[in-house]
C-alpha cells in the first residue's frame, strides 16, 4: 500500500511536471501515423502521468480526479472508436479497416481519408491503453481490494 507522504518538493515538482507529460502523451498519439510513436506508447505515457499523481499525492485524491467509473467508460470508448472506424469501412462496401473508402462520407480524397482513418485508430488505441494501464495499476497498488472503489 502506498501511503501519502507530506513532501512539498515532490508535490510541487509533480504538479509542474504532470501537465507536460500529458501534453507529450497527446503529441505522441497525434503524430503516431507519421513519426515514431503511436496509440500504445502515447497511452502508456498518459497512464504514467496518472501513476505519478497516485505516487505524489494519495489514492483518494487521484480517484477524485479520474474516478473508477470514468476509467471504465474510457476503456470501452477506445474499443468503440476502433471498432466503429472498422465497421464504417465494412458498411461502405470495403474490407474491415480499409480506410480509403471513408472518402465517400468525408469531404476529402482517399489518400487523406486513409490518413484520418489511421488517426482515429490511434486515438482509440491510446484511450483504451491508458484506461487499462491505470486499471492494472490501481489493482496492483491496492492489492486487488479496491478500497471504497467497489461501492461506486
Amino acid at each position: 500500500m502506498i501511503t501519502p507522504l507530506e513532501n512539498i518538493i515532490i508535490k510541487t515538482i509533480c504538479r509542474l511536471l504532470i501537465p507536460f507529460i500529458q501534453l507529450f502523451g497527446l503529441y505522441v498519439i497525434a503524430h503516431g501515423h507519421g513519426s515514431p510513436g503511436g496509440g500504445f506508447q502515447g497511452g502508456c505515457i498518459l497512464a504514467a502521468s496518472f501513476m505519478l499523481v497516485v505516487v505524489a499525492f494519495d489514492l483518494p485524491e487521484a480517484k477524485r480526479r479520474f474516478s473508477e467509473k470514468m476509467n471504465n467508460i474510457f476503456s470501452s470508448l477506445g474499443v468503440f472508436i476502433y471498432a466503429w472506424t472498422g465497421w464504417m469501412c465494412l458498411l461502405l462496401g470495403a474490407n474491415f479497416l480499409d480506410y480509403g473508402i471513408l472518402s465517400k462520407i468525408l469531404p476529402v480524397n482517399p489518400v487523406m481519408a486513409r490518413y484520418y482513418g489511421m488517426f482515429s485508430i490511434e486515438v482509440g488505441v491510446g484511450i483504451t491503453v491508458m484506461a487499462i494501464m491505470v486499471s492494472l495499476f490501481l489493482d496492483l497498488v491496492t492489492g486487488g481490494k479496491h478500497e471504497e472503489a467497489l461501492d461506486e
Binding site: 515514431p36 506508447q41 505515457i45
Partner: peptide
C-alpha cells in the same frame, strides 16, 4: 526504442 522507453522503463 520508444515502446521500450514508455512501457519497459516507465509503466
Amino acid at each position: 526504442a520508444f515502446t521500450e522507453a514508455a512501457v519497459g522503463a516507465g509503466v
